[in-house]
Nucleic acid binder design. Structure first.
Lengths: 161, 161
DNA sequence: TTGCGCGTTAACAGTTTTGTAAACGCTCAG
DNA sequence: CTGAGCGTTTACAAAACTGTTAACGCGCAA
């Protein structure tokens, strides 16, 4: 091993892979992101592929995902046809906002669904009345959760420094 | 269709399935939970299987998962050998705490990993020094996120009523 | 004891996901 | 124009996941 930090890099890269997999993006996305985050220099597609032991195709696809999420930047060097990659400068903010957005979307879908159910259940008789009660309870829960997310105090706290 | 609310039940059950799938538990878990939540009476394994169009085996397995999460209760009736299921009474609290726990666990794993990396990187030379800087930045981010979760104001807000 | 009903377990089949290899197209150098 | 280098697309193989069927174990009733 040339670099003494190789072992640590490898381990943290795996952590990134697991994490992004948990979020429903593949493991490769997380691996690339951490790998770049821990690299002092920009890396080409081939560099990344070699370091992670994956095919260029896989890296290519995942890299585009990362770029569309605003977590990764491409760059070029004069007289060099390769594309180089590095993590976005505001990666912390991007991560933070991305996660929030994800949660908000889910929540909002849920809200739509609950509201619609509520409407359809009115005046259908006793069984529907029961379901309606449950739906209302669920709606209240969702509203509480949402109000926390949107609360100014929480926003202040979660602001990335 | 006997019950006028059947359609709504079906749709909400699907929502539950999708949601629990997103969380990495299978879809069945969420389907069962919503199905029971919307049912005014306790249901047997077979009832659930028939309503959801799944095998008893599948329900059996998912139901145990739900029980271990504290989201579901079993009960028995005298002179009846079947097991009956209903959602836990404190299901809102259980859901809330379960989610929080999940996040906390992930966070804590991350903390361990970062701390260890930090230790191993000391005094290994310039490259390791760079990685160390990045690790420290990540640690700070994680700490901020965690402090929000543990913040008393947030706790107060997220308390389920 | 035998038989039946219930929940669980185990083996398996269908489906989906994941990553690769190879072909492709584009761009630039000669 | 031609060839080489690069990233991307496509077709496919391997692996993982999901849910079913069938066998099993257990308890109760006859």
């Amino acid at each position: 091993m040339d670099e003494p930090a190789t072992e640590v890099r490898k381990r943290l890269t795996e952590v990134g892979g697991r994490t992004s997999q948990d979020l429903g993006l593949g493991r490769i996305v997380g691996q690339i992101l951490v790998h770049l985050y821990l690299s002092p220099v920009e890396q080409s597609l081939e560099d990344i592929a070699k370091d992670l032991g994956l095919s260029k195709a896989a890296i290519s696809i995942a890299a585009r995902q990362l770029e569309s999420l605003g977590l990764l930047r491409r760059s070029w060097k004069p007289g060099d046809r390769k594309t180089y990659y590095r993590t976005a400068d505001d990666i912390a903010t991007a991560l933070h906002q991305g996660l929030l957005m994800l949660v908000r979307n889910k929540m909002s879908l849920l809200a739509t669904e609950l509201k619609q159910a509520e409407g359809e259940l009115k005046g259908l008789g006793p069984d529907a009345e029961f379901v309606l009660g449950r739906v209302k309870r669920a709606k209240k829960l969702r509203d509480t959760a949402m109000s926390v997310l949107e609360n100014p105090v929480v926003r202040l706290l979660t602001r990335v420094k």
